[in-house]
Simulated scan of single mutants.
Amino acid sequence: MRGIGQFFAVMLMAAAAFPLAAGADEAKVKPAPTQRWSIAIHGGAGVIPRGSLTPAEESAYRQGLSDALAAGSAVLKAGGTSLDAVEAAVKVLENNPLFNAGKGAVFDAEGKNQLDAAIMDGTTLRAGAVAGVSATKNPIMLARAVMEHSPHVLLSGSGADQFAREQHIEQVDPSYFRTEKRWQQYLEWKKGRNSASLDPTHRFGTVGAVAVDVNGHLAAATSTGGTTGKRWGRIGDSPLIGAGTYAYHNDCAVSATGTGEYFIRESAARQLCDRVRWRNQSVADAAKDTIASIGAIGGDGGLIAIDGKGEVAFAMNTEGMYRGRVSAADETPRVAIYADEVIAGR
């Protein structure tokens, strides 16, 4: 028995003598994350039949989508967070005058650009949003600042721009957002024409992104200029958490685009996640059923969604939606415009 006691005493002394070394060895052999990253984006939905865009316009839209995918995927490839990835992708779309967000935003009834955006971290359920911003170059950056540096979720109007200045987020003269195309649409609207017929190829212009990173964390982001001729401080679904933007743990992340009032009434983004979470639907089935529920009450548009495994879903009840995806499993960016286009790969 004495020999056994001496053996255990020696072993205990050895363990006590080298605790740091053992910890260091564990750190060296700790396996790297095995989750595959994935990101999807959209640039708005609408009446986009084949032939409605010139070859040059179609090429420009596809390139714009590819550029946004490149920005978001670069973050994910480097091991960055899904939150950083969706912000990076949306910033590219905000800076592209083709899309109704940031630089290409439409004009409201008073001839001004009023911008909305939201972002949400599925892991923590933190969210930030802004509405009616008029001087912040990239509203999605401001939405994230609201999430990370304020006790609030949603700021609006001049207060949101003031918060942006306090956070040292780049400000621009409101004229920065003006594009001739959007101005001409506004003038047509002022003539009394049906605003729904303006720019039918980009009728519901909103941009967004959803992503999952190598740690399995989900995030969603959305940004928009709203609708041409909007009045009375109208706010759509984009900056409303649970309506146009939502992310929940490792279940799903969603960004929507369409007739915002209907997406709000159906709590579209949250509804999709609840279908995945509570009904055990696939993200594809949940997206399809959510769009069906919006169509049933008269709404039009589309959405993108992703689950914790990186499965991506696109759903729409319009003739098209500017959209794209790329993942670690297929690093070739895949983009599409028309409803009958199938994005290959996973």
Score class of each variant (00 low, 15 high):
residue 262 Y to T: 12
residue 70 A to D: 08
residue 298 G to K: 10
residue 24 A to W: 14
residue 76 L to Q: 01
residue 55 P to R: 03
residue 335 V to D: 01
residue 16 A to H: 02
residue 150 S to N: 05
residue 167 Q to R: 15
residue 309 K to Y: 15
residue 50 R to S: 00
residue 72 G to C: 01
residue 93 L to C: 04
residue 35 Q to K: 14
residue 224 T to G: 04
residue 106 V to H: 08
residue 173 D to I: 08
residue 340 D to Y: 05
residue 36 R to W: 10
residue 259 T to G: 06
residue 133 V to P: 00
residue 345 G to A: 03
residue 43 G to N: 01
residue 69 L to I: 10
residue 336 A to T: 02
residue 259 T to H: 12
residue 158 S to E: 14
residue 306 I to Y: 07
residue 85 A to I: 12
residue 264 I to Q: 00
residue 307 D to K: 12
residue 225 G to C: 09
residue 194 N to G: 06
residue 184 Q to E: 14
residue 267 S to F: 15
residue 85 A to S: 08
residue 192 G to C: 05
residue 177 F to A: 03
residue 75 V to Q: 04
residue 193 R to S: 13
residue 283 V to K: 06
residue 311 E to Y: 14
residue 346 R to I: 08
residue 341 E to G: 00
residue 335 V to L: 09
residue 158 S to G: 12
residue 289 D to Q: 14
residue 161 D to G: 02
residue 304 I to F: 07
residue 19 P to T: 00
residue 100 N to D: 13
residue 147 M to F: 05
residue 2 R to S: 13
residue 93 L to T: 02
residue 48 I to F: 06
residue 318 T to S: 11
residue 193 R to M: 13
residue 169 I to H: 08
residue 180 E to W: 10
residue 94 E to V: 09
residue 20 L to M: 12
residue 192 G to K: 12
residue 302 G to W: 03
residue 25 D to N: 11
residue 276 V to K: 02
residue 12 L to N: 12
residue 216 G to P: 04
residue 178 R to M: 11
residue 213 D to Q: 08
residue 59 S to E: 14
residue 138 N to P: 03
residue 172 V to I: 03
residue 290 T to F: 03
residue 275 R to K: 15
residue 57 E to D: 13
residue 112 K to I: 09
residue 270 R to T: 10
residue 110 E to C: 05
residue 284 A to P: 09
residue 5 G to Y: 15
residue 148 E to C: 06
residue 16 A to P: 00
residue 41 I to M: 10
residue 159 G to P: 01
residue 184 Q to R: 15
residue 55 P to M: 05
residue 181 K to W: 13
residue 25 D to V: 11
residue 198 L to T: 01
residue 106 V to S: 03
residue 343 I to M: 12
residue 269 A to C: 07
residue 192 G to P: 03
residue 53 L to Q: 00
residue 73 S to E: 11
residue 153 V to F: 07
residue 222 T to I: 08
residue 132 G to Q: 08
residue 1 M to F: 14
residue 251 D to Y: 15
residue 180 E to M: 15
residue 196 A to C: 08
residue 3 G to I: 15
residue 14 A to T: 11
residue 177 F to M: 06
residue 82 S to R: 03
residue 94 E to Q: 07
residue 49 P to W: 07
residue 228 T to W: 06
residue 62 R to N: 05
residue 299 G to C: 10
residue 133 V to K: 07
residue 276 V to P: 00
residue 263 F to W: 06
residue 12 L to Q: 12
residue 155 L to Y: 08
residue 134 S to Y: 09
residue 230 K to G: 05
residue 177 F to W: 03
residue 261 E to G: 09
residue 230 K to C: 08
residue 122 G to A: 04
